[in-house]
Design a protein around this nucleic acid. Structure first.
Lengths: 218, 218
DNA sequence: TTGTAAAGTGAGTAATCACTCATTTTAGGT
DNA sequence: ACCTAAAATGAGTGATTACTCACTTTACAA
């Protein structure tokens, strides 16, 4: 089931382990928990409501998850690995340099790909963003397995294209922050802040890329 | 106490109504509630803990605030007006055009000013950002009294400088989104995501402005 | 068909929740 | 010094919370 082709733009299209061997009821619990956590927030959600919406007894939840927090982590943790999946390919650098001749191309591919990912996993991403500030384990996991890894890869990208003269001379950390900010802001605005506005996605992504290139391109 | 001078860059330095006639205990309640809400989130905070930290009886909280949610709104609401204060000056347009000859100047002034504001009101701003998604009244208030008003002013700014040829030809809404995203992202990263990193604020603001201008300037 | 371990149940538990209210304390004008 | 209204109190309320556990049901290999 796991795709592993690494040709073309597919670096950013690898999928990962789908839900393994889960009981039917366990899947129902996860689905209900995801919906309720996303809608009301973790702290304001009760296990009784989750059980009710999942159509299981409350005790069933605690047979699979020691605590309510355990349930939260079981939901949020997997999304973190999947969030960085495209960046942690083993020969990332090589594949990268041979497939993308310009920063623009690369950034566009990343943005399109992560947009699809965000679209597909919106509720869980909302939970992640909402709960990270209040759960040190989540924050730590995010910093260690998401932020730092993405940063390293972006560092590779920026320095590589900087040496090619495609990117202006500015501290790498600032360039990374500015690029990431623009791209993440687009996704957050698009799917979280104003999801019900009518978006011309292709055009707006194009403008975002144009804007970024104007800011960091030579 | 309220400053009303409108000369120089002071448009973005107006202060507003300070805490009016509040009991000493009421101030203690607000202070404790702000700290605890910011730290643990609204739903995970108990009125008993707030009362304890404030050094008052739990009943005292409910003498001043009908419900716990009422307390939340009493904390978050005022910050919204203060957030947009610089933008709702009555003769904003006139003062604006006479005081700032370039977009760059203006954006820099806004960013510096709102940075100071964010620094001074960080915990309340955190609460606002955290709780808006879960409280329709707050969301509505934010959209009506913050987002739409700021948007209108930015529209004025963008079209004005566009007619002067300082800003590229791109849909106004996209330009506003991109500018606002870059500036807000800086503040969020600076104060919420990575507050403990060592920032060279002046330099980073300058880079942000330079980046924005590269993206939207001619 | 039968044995058994895992899955599922739901009534029960102690703790905590937001909120009430009868009573006491405080502040300030006369 | 006295009066009074507002401020403050804290024990008490029923509802809800996350979680437990003795028990029943299910799935499936032998």
């Amino acid at each position: 089931m796991t795709k592993n082709d690494t040709n073309g733009e597919s670096i950013f299209e690898l999928s990962v382990e789908e839900n393994k061997e889960l009981t039917q009821k366990q899947k129902q619990i996860l689905e209900a928990a995801i919906n309720i956590f996303a809608e009301k927030g973790y702290a304001a959600s009760s296990t009784s409501e989750i059980a009710k919406q999942a159509g299981v007894a409350e005790g069933t939840i605690f047979r699979h998850y020691k605590t309510k927090k355990d349930l939260l982590i079981s939901i949020v943790s997997p999304i973190m690995s999947r969030l960085v999946a495209p960046f942690v390919i083993n020969d990332f650098k090589k594949v990268l340099h041979t497939n993308y001749e310009t920063v623009e191309e690369l950034l566009r591919a990343i943005l399109f790909n992560r947009k699809a990912f965000a679209e597909k996993n919106l509720p869980i991403i909302k939970i992640m963003l909402q709960e990270i500030p209040f759960h040190p384990e989540l924050k730590e996991q995010f910093m260690k397995h998401v932020a730092s890894k993405v940063y390293t890869r972006l560092e590779d990208i920026v320095t590589h294209f900087q040496s090619q003269g495609q990117i202006i001379d500015m501290p790498t950390s600032s360039i990374i922050r500015l690029i990431a900010s623009s791209m993440i802001s687009y996704l957050v605005t698009r799917f979280i802040i104003m999801p019900e506005a009518d978006w011309d996605d292709e055009a707006e992504i194009e403008r975002t890329i144009q804007y970024v290139m104007g800011g960091i391109g030579k």
